[in-house]
Design a protein around this nucleic acid. Structure first.
Lengths: 232, 232
DNA sequence: CGGTACGGATTGTTGAGCAATCTCACAAGA
DNA sequence: TCTTGTGAGATTGCTCAACAATCCGTACCG
């Protein structure tokens, strides 16, 4: 062993622990991905027995995995009736956007105070543009979501960030219910670009107004795609 | 049975469902209360076996209860090492107040738009004053917390409300580590009264400035009581 | 047509059990 | 003296099988 002793700073800067994963956590993560990928559609019932045999684990462990997913609000748990992949309603979508209109102005202010944040946002806009150019609208959607995620992370509050992640995750569940992914994500590639320009210019009022417009538009689009016009 | 049918409004106004509780939920709620009441101090280890026999339930059910508590961040779960009542560190207290300074301005704005909210806040201030007069500082603390809880609820966003509840719950855990409950809560009874006056007067800038001062003071007081001055 | 009783399926909970892991005390070595 | 194994005991992670409680759909009955 080398005789050099690690100084105190080096020790206290260690990132806690790598945090191993239990079997339940592994199962939960696998299910989460299946849901995010749309392989498990909203409304699907997840039966304990079926999943236990599919993963070759015990029913009790599956139940633990369900608790973890329910915590993230990806599934709904009804006593004695089982867990279902959550179906986000139109009313909930409206609530989600109401929350975004309330909270995201904080992100705008944070971005205006931090040039690094604006730079990071630029990367997301670029990613969205290239994805759009390649007609990969799922990737474009991811870039759009990341744009806002990064903006809110700039606030520097873990609690706010966690809440916003939650909002975005639920919104993603709503997106899964739509089919026209181009119609869903395409409008926002340009909108994010505009928003970024306002931020880069330091135009606070413009950016705030642009954000509100953006979110109102987004809500309208999502709602219209959620309930395809029955007269069509 | 009476033949009268409840009209739609009455139906939709029903508070969802009384939501029965499973055994695990009951156990979790009992433990939660024990923690909130200080009967289970932060840092205490909760052993599955001991609690299972104490509640006369199975270890598996205890584990489910632990998951529920971990979800509320009241306990910490370390793989293969058990669950402990969470100890909120000074750094976390600072984060909590940073989040409050970031988010609560939204509550001020909401209260200024809603006279009913201001009235509700008045009740909390009164409750705090009477509790203080009776030297019941735990009740005063509860009233103080409720004051801010009500204010944030005025925002009308379930997500924001839930996040703020979380912040307050964690703060309460920090309070449990202190002993001087009078010194902890007394200053805020008057501060809330002042803040209410500014809100009632419609003085937005004054209220916002007062809030920031309030939160900075509160952070300082909590931190000082958390680490009693070693030179004393 | 509305209510109801029945049966299968699914969940809620238990208790025992085993392997993996942690904690802690104690001994061996530098 | 301080560090570094080592092992016993305790605790957790997970499994399995079983049973009770509950839900759902269906057929039956008034």
């Amino acid at each position: 062993m080398v005789s050099a002793e690690p100084d105190e700073d080096a020790l206290s800067d260690l990132p806690a622990l790598p945090k191993r994963a239990s079997t339940a956590e592994y199962a939960a993560e696998t299910l989460r991905r299946q849901i995010a990928d749309g392989k498990l559609r909203p409304g699907t019932q997840l039966r304990e027995g079926a999943i236990a045999t599919a993963f070759s684990i015990s029913r009790n462990t599956v139940r633990e995995a369900f608790r973890l997913l329910a915590h993230k609000r990806l599934v709904e748990h009804a006593l004695h009736r089982g867990v279902y992949v959550r179906e986000v309603s139109a009313a909930e979508v409206r609530e989600l956007y109401a929350t975004r209109r309330l909270v995201q102005p904080l992100g705008i202010d944070a971005a205006l105070r931090d040039p690094d944040c604006v730079a990071a946002l630029g990367e997301r806009v670029e990613a969205g543009a290239t994805a759009a150019a390649e007609d990969d609208w799922d990737a474009a959607g991811t870039a759009n979501i990341d744009f806002h995620r990064v903006m809110m992370a700039g606030c520097g509050s873990d609690h706010v960030t966690a809440m916003f992640e939650q909002v975005l995750a639920e919104l993603r569940l709503a997106f899964l219910l739509t089919t026209d992914h181009k119609g869903l994500h395409a409008p926002f590639v340009g909108a994010n670009h505009q928003l970024l320009a306002l931020l880069a210019a330091g135009d606070r009022d413009g950016a705030q107004a642009g954000l509100q417009r953006y979110l109102l538009d987004a809500e309208r689009i999502v709602l219209s795609l959620l309930h395809p016009d029955p007269t069509a």
